[in-house]
Design a protein around this nucleic acid. Structure first.
Lengths: 142, 142
DNA sequence: TTCTTGGATGAGAATCATTATAATCCAGGA
DNA sequence: TCCTGGATTATAATGATTCTCATCCAAGAA
């Protein structure tokens, strides 16, 4: 059985990333337990083992890990607030790379299955969804 | 037929909001054409008619309009980046009010219908979705 | 093993979006 | 028309994230 150090070195090598000590501990902090973590949370956890680490290093490497598919961004966020006047129920297609948002029509959600899976008390009246993918330009550039 | 001014005064009255000149022009700027608009874009458009308006007023009123259902927020955004190590395809349930994110299992997407609706060139390999609603706590507080 | 070098890191400044503050201002009821 | 509480303005403050640049180190070469 591989140690977690070896696992990371392996992944880093496959992604063409240098296996630095900082990257190791950041990666292990995220993988230690399932969950959604913010840069500040990871910073706090990692500093216990590596007090000299910089917050900028956390940000740099999280971005790198997400780009290389070692981690997933929980909720691809546009840089600014966006509002729309179209109140008709409709969905959005979001490019995970450039964050562009376009409307998408159509009924592709099985509401019965969805509400069966939702936790008790979660209000799904008018469930709107965002579908993630790569827009034409970004998928061409890749 | 109602003028757009009358339409807004009507909506404002129904929502219990004072119908100020600023609110009028902000609302009309968003409704002028279908699309997704940022506060800065709206600010730029509105300043042409009302040069003295403040950016803070744009932000205040967009938030107010969204809260009262006159406008919709395109993409409810968490305040900070969140990453996860779980790379298995799974979806997220997001509270539009407090922005809390939880995992949701299950296969409630009709991928065939979805890809039929997506524009040409949009890469939907591994389509992940976020479903919006109100978490138990927020739907109780409402 | 040591050497070399380009990429990685650390500290803090800078930037960007958004919110808070406090002094006017005005919509709408009396 | 007059009052009053909420709305607006200008600007400062905040919080998240990125940038800058001097220093450091991982990893291939010798």
């Amino acid at each position: 059985m591989q140690t977690s150090h070896e696992q990371f070195r392996d992944l880093a090598w496959k992604s063409g990333l240098a296996a630095t000590h900082q990257r190791q501990v950041i990666y292990e902090a995220v993988m230690a337990a399932p969950g959604h973590y913010s840069p500040e949370q990871i910073y706090a956890a990692v500093r216990r083992q590596t007090p000299s680490i910089s917050l900028a290093t956390i940000y740099n490497n999280l971005r790198l890990f997400v780009e290389h598919g070692l981690l997933r961004e929980v909720s691809p966020r546009t840089s600014t607030l966006l509002v729309e006047g179209n109140l008709e129920p409709h969905h959005h297609l979001v490019c995970t790379r450039c964050k562009a948002v376009q409307d998408i029509e159509g009924d592709f959600i099985n509401y019965k299955k969805l509400s069966r899976q939702a936790p008790r008390g979660f209000d799904l009246t008018q469930p709107l969804v965002e579908v993630f993918g790569l827009c034409r330009r970004c998928s061409a550039e890749k």
